[in-house]
Amino acid sequence: MPSDANTAPANAAATRHTFEFTGTAGEMWPIVLKNLLLNIITLSFYRFWGRTNVRRYLWSNVRFMGDPLEYTGRGGELFVGFLIVTVVVFLPLVGLLTWAQALMARGEPFGFILFSAGYLLLLWLAPLGLYRAFKYRMSRTRWRGVRGAQTESGVRYATEFFFYTILTVFTAGLLLPFMEAKLYTQETNNRRFGTGRFSFSGSSGPLYSAFLISYALVVGGYVLVFVIAGNLAKLGFVAILGLYLFLGLAFAIYELAKLKHFWNSTKFEGAEFVFNGEIGELIKLYLGNILLTLVTLGIAYPIAQMRVVRFMTEHLVLVGQINLAAVTQSTEAEPGFGEGLAEGFDMGTI
C-alpha cells in the first residue's frame, strides 16, 4: 500500500519521458575500424558480425527514462538469414531471369513476359525484406528486459507497397505522401513493445503543403538546369554535385514535415510522441552526414548513423502517463534469423 501511494504522484509529475544518447564518435571509431579490418580479411563476410557490433553499441547508448536499450541480435543470425534467402529466393530468381534472357535472345515473347514478371517480383520482395528486417530488429530490441515486436508477416505491407509504388509512378510522384502515410500506418499499428501498442492516427493530408513545396523546388531545379545548361552532361562535376545537394535539401522540407506529423500522431499506450526538430537542424544533420560519408569513402557510415540516432533522441519526447506495470512481456514469436532479404536489396543498413 505505501508503495502504491508513492508511485501515483511520481508518475503524474514525470509525464515528459525523454530519450538520451550517451555514445561518442571516439568510442564508435574503434568499432568501425575493427569491422573494416575484419571485413577486408574475410572478404566482407564479417559484415554480419560487424553490423551487430555497431547496433549493440548504438542500442546500449540509447536511454529512455534513464534506462538503456539492449540489442540481443547475433551476427550468426544475420548470416543464416543471408544464406537462407540466397538459396531460397535469390538463386532461383537469378535462374529465372537468366532463363528469361535466354528466351529473349531467341526472340520468344514469353521470355519478355517472364523477365518483366521477375522484375515485378523484385518490387514486391524489396518491401517484404524491409518489413522482415523491422520484425527482426524489434524482436532483438530489449528495454527493461521486455522485447519489441512487429506483428504480421509483411505480405500485406509488401503488396500495398507494390501497388502504391506503381500508382505513384503513374502520378509523377504526387501520390508519394499518400503512399508513405499508408505504409507508416501499417508499420506503426503493427509495432509493439511487450504487450504495449504503438498507434498512428495521422493521414497524408497535413504532409501535402510541405511536399508540394519540395516537389516544386525539385521540378523547378531541374527545369532551370535544362534551360540554362541544355542538359546535365554539359555541367561540370561540381555543378552536378551542387544540384544533387540542392535537390536533397529541397526534400528536407518534406522530410521534416514527415518526421513531425508522423511522430506527433504516434502514440504508445496512451502517451504521445512529440518531435521538436527544426529544418536548420535537419539540414545540418544531412550535410554533416553527406560530408562524413564522402570524405571517408563510406567508412564512417556507422558514425553518420549514430548522428541520426542522436538527432532523434534529442528531438523526440514521449508525453503522458504509461501504466508500466500493465505492459508485460511480448507473446509474439521471435524470428530465428534475420534480414537476409533486406540484405539482398542492400537495405540492412543500420
Binding site: W143, L324, A325, A326, Q329
Partner: peptide, 9 residues
Amino acid sequence: YFDGSNLEG
C-alpha cells in the same frame, strides 16, 4: 531489477 514480466520492475 527487471525480469521481463513488466516494465515497472
